[in-house]
Design a protein around this nucleic acid. Structure first.
Lengths: 234, 234
DNA sequence: TAACGGAACGAACAGTGTTCGTTCAACGAA
DNA sequence: TTCGTTGAACGAACACTGTTCGTTCCGTTA
């Protein structure tokens, strides 16, 4: 025989739901994947979990921490190899590509890529892999550690830039192909119409400027970096 | 003998002020330099100009456009050389360093560096300089244009990352040196305390990981890129 | 059983970018 | 000179944001 709730007491909707940091992070990542970074607010996450935004703060310090946790969650998808001295260059390349693809598969995550210091548990794991590969390849420790720093910056910067393009495409409401045609068509027109006397190199190489998609440019830059890194070998 | 304003008409504070896009951009840049990116809101700019935020929209489409214009204003400070075939490598290096320094002198501008497609008038001027130097150095057009793309990404990404550190320092309320000691001390401790069996490379090279300030790392990465670029010469 | 501590929660705060409708002022035509 | 037009300038308001503060709930321990 329960005593009925007095009418002056606000009834709760449901029994309190158990939250956890992991649940919040996974929910955030799902929202980001499906709706984009702009849709990822504390309220949106809370709504998805059937609660209010204030409840999230028992598990994450603030939104910034949530974003860092989400990014590290994604980095957790990166599989890392065991270093092989005979294949260190290929392994570095493959690892960079793998990272590039994982970040690209959660498109808007690129926008978080440069926002955090790589000290999450998964980022440390990936850093260890990078470093061990370079050390196995005979690079001096200082070259390897700085190489790690710069390669990580390169991959995350490329991811960041790609995510910006994607945001523009999404904001346009167009399909990716339509948007790309339009956007890059505009860039081409802009370059073509620059005054040739002041911009002879740009106007004279518009085709070369426009050639190559994101993959090709990433590949080219990576090759630059790896060749440069190789030149520091003893 | 003027007729007095009727009391039912809201009196204007002052005579209407003439605004211009240039004035808004310069004001925005000043606020960003003095108070940081977080303080740069439409309201803050409008306040500084003695008006309301809605007035700015007669001159800039939205905040995003204002930030792009501010960035291009800063890029306008970059002096570009005339390409010299005999010194193309040095010239590239100097241009990158010059750009690095200009971006660094407006510290929070780095946060805008990756946000815009480099098609502003000043960005085009800098792009032309990069490209002409590489072409003068004998690089094939495709290598030069992709090299431009990747070098630009590198410099702006480094600026972005640096500005993040600066934001953390500013948020801490500490002086730069105090904050750096504390922050990097924490990173060092974190690395040192990773389990050595799972992170042998990181834990075995903490000193090398921590060595080198931003300038050194930028220099190293730039050297990687330039050596790599050189390897593509015919 | 009562007290404690941490999780969960709602209300509210201060702030954001932007839009909408209005006012102002300059300019050109009649 | 007057009137109409147009674009700049403006204020009020909207919808939204991250976060804090105070309260309630619930599990654990003494």
């Amino acid at each position: 025989m329960d005593v009925p709730t007095p009418p002056w007491r606000t009834p709760r909707k449901i029994a309190r739901q158990q939250l956890s940091q992991d649940l919040i992070v996974r929910t955030g990542l799902r929202i980001l994947d499906e709706e984009g970074l702009e849709a990822l607010s504390m309220r949106r996450v809370a709504q998805e979990l059937g609660t209010g935004p204030a409840s999230l703060y028992a598990h994450v310090a603030n939104k910034e921490e949530l974003l860092e946790l989400i990014f590290d969650e994604v980095v957790g998808e990166i599989e890392v190899p065991i270093a092989d001295p005979a294949r260190w260059r290929d392994q570095l390349k493959e690892l960079c590509w793998h990272m590039y693809r994982v970040l690209g598969s959660h498109a808007d995550v690129g926008r978080l890529a440069l926002a955090s210091i790589p000290v999450g548990p998964n980022a440390a794991r990936v850093s260890e892999a990078f470093l061990s590969i370079m050390l196995a390849g005979g690079l001096p420790p200082q070259v390897a550690t700085w190489g790690l720093d710069r390669l990580y910056l390169y991959v995350t910067a490329d991811a960041y830039e790609s995510s910006l393009f994607l945001a523009k495409q999404r904001a346009s409401g167009l399909e990716l192909d339509s948007w790309a045609d339009q956007f890059f068509g505009q860039v081409r027109t802009y370059l073509s119409q620059l005054p040739a006397d002041r911009f002879p190199s740009l106007t004279g190489n518009v085709d070369a400027m426009m050639r190559g998609d994101g993959d090709k440019r990433f590949e080219f830059g990576l090759e630059m970096l790896l060749r440069g890194l190789d030149s520091f070998r003893d």
